[in-house]
Design a protein around this nucleic acid. Structure first.
Length: 229
DNA sequence: GCGACAG
DNA sequence: ATCTTGTCGC
């Protein structure tokens, strides 16, 4: 994919927060999807010590085979020096640069992207999935393994059960707490960009194998963390 | 001032 | 996220 070059990525925390506030109004929570034929999963890992950031993107064909197997259409691993430390709420400034490096080398363009992290379920409604979606101008969904902000009740025990994740004095619904697998800690799904929450839940559910994470992010996780099967 | 805090 | 051994369970 051709990617717009990066700039302004060495911001102080207060500058980064100001930028997020400016960009947040551009994040779209309503569907604006093209027909989906390819779904990408994105995740970032680090070398021992954290000086090197490793971004992995895996692209899967949609729909899966009759047996439920997803065909891997393309995959890229991109490494570069780590630019920023991890700061809760500012994760995208640490991970998006490396992710863009991986997308630059991708031969195909996905119609939907699942990102390991929050979408609008973020204090300023612009988590890493939303930020990446804005930059790529592609529909994205945030799939996080734990909560950053918001309140929720425990979802039911069955796979597919979910409860709303709400935040603010007005109880904004910013995401969903989804039981992606029975007896396992739920995952946090939210709109990233150009995908409504209900649609995000449908896609994540449709991509679930027998594991906790949907295939796109599960496979990207595996690649980024250097593990094999 | 005291917790909470994606990856 | 990463550093790490064994262990419980399908």
């Amino acid at each position: 994919m051709s990617i717009t070059p990066l700039h302004e990525w060495h911001l102080s925390p207060s500058e980064a927060i100001a930028l997020q506030k400016r960009l947040a109004s551009s994040v779209e929570r309503a569907d604006r999807l093209d027909p989906v034929r390819r779904i990408a999963g994105v995740d970032i890992g680090f070398e021992q010590g954290g000086d090197i950031t490793r971004a992995a993107v895996v692209v899967l064909a949609w729909p899966p085979s009759a047996g439920g197997e997803f065909e891997v259409v393309a995959q890229v691993v991109h490494r570069e020096p780590t630019r920023m430390p991890y700061v809760p709420g500012l994760l995208s400034f640490r991970e998006v640069p490396a992710a863009l490096g991986a997308f630059e080398r991708l031969e195909v363009t996905p119609q939907l992207v699942m990102v390991d992290g929050q979408g609008v379920a973020h204090p300023r409604r612009i988590g890493v999935a939303s930020h990446l979606g804005l930059w790529l101008d592609l529909p994205t969904i945030g799939v996080a393994k734990s909560r950053l902000c918001g309140r929720h009740t425990e979802p039911g025990p069955a796979r597919g059960d979910w409860t709303p994740l709400v935040d603010g004095v007005d109880d904004d619904v910013i995401g969903a707490v989804l039981r992606s697998r029975a007896k396992v800690k739920p995952i946090f799904v939210s709109s990233g960009h150009r995908v409504a929450l209900a649609t995000a839940l449908e896609w994540v559910t449709a991509c679930l194998g027998r594991t906790k994470l949907p295939e796109p992010t599960r496979l990207a996780d595996r690649l980024a963390s250097r593990r094999g099967e």
